[in-house]
Write a protein that binds this DNA or RNA. Sequence first.
DNA 1: ATGCCGGTGGGGAAAAGTGGGGAATTAGGG
DNA 2: CCCTAATTCCCCACTTTTCCCCACCGGCAT
Lengths: 148, 148
Amino acid sequence: MSSFKGRYNYSVDEKGRIALPAKLRKNVASSAKGNFVITRGFEKCLYVYPQDEWNTLEQNVRNLSFLDAKQRNFNRTLFQWAADSQLDSQSRITVQQELLDYAGIKNEVIVLGVLDRIEIWSPSVYDEFQKIQPVTYETVAEQVFKQQ
Amino acid sequence: MSSFKGRYNYSVDEKGRIALPAKLRKNVASSAKGNFVITRGFEKCLYVYPQDEWNTLEQNVRNLSFLDAKQRNFNRTLFQWAADSQLDSQSRITVQQELLDYAGIKNEVIVLGVLDRIEIWSPSVYDEFQKIQPVTYETVAEQVFKQQ
DNA sequence: ATGCCGGTGGGGAAAAGTGGGGAATTAGGG
DNA sequence: CCCTAATTCCCCACTTTTCCCCACCGGCAT
């Protein structure tokens, strides 16, 4: 199981390529072999999952009933934004324009390691997002560190 | 086992041919080798299955209860309109006019990868369909990406 | 200083997507 | 039964996109 952490500033070139930080790459399971799945995040950002982590998520929806219209659309909605991606020889992923637009990404990004996934943010979008967060780090930290 | 994903805009030529996106083709089991089954979807769209996934589906259907009216109707829709289809040398499938009409398809289509099947939609029909769907990406993401 | 690693940029070959001509096959009518 | 019309399918051609590979730059460690 992956354990990504850290915050990194990276650039996006004209071909939509973004390098994955070396420190994050070292935490990718060898079984993933440079294969990632990139998709829309819950927030206005992108999620990048190593193949093995994505498979775990996928397993949870494989058994949804094909007979139920709502569940069919659940899968449709989930998978339409996801894209397979392979690292090139320079350890970059290519992100299609559609996804970049969704996250409001232009030339620069913030790359975050968040446990089992990697998040990619537009710097300005990320700043805005942090400002309007009702839950501050303090309140979360309170909860996490209280329990022992 | 297939894991189709992504959303693609493609064109339909005058002969009713639609190319299968390369990224989807890469997920087709080699055992299917260009053999597909295309049929009416339960929504106003078309379902395309690689041969191996279709076989799995048939197997599952055999085990469904005959007593359930919903399932009997399910079988009817799925099987009476199903047609075998092979990719041509340019990786296209030819779709008969009857099926194109059913889905309201003219010159352009949206191709969706949905785990074990591929869906083909008329762009305008798909827009309309999504407008009235209660399932948004947020609700889906909430369920799938929450950490346990 | 120098070699290596990590990040950035770009040119060119290969693949993918699109369109259409024409042969082969099938169907129908005389 | 044959001829013709329509449809299918095989192949060729053109354009766009992708991706593979090479090159450079800067910092860190040897």
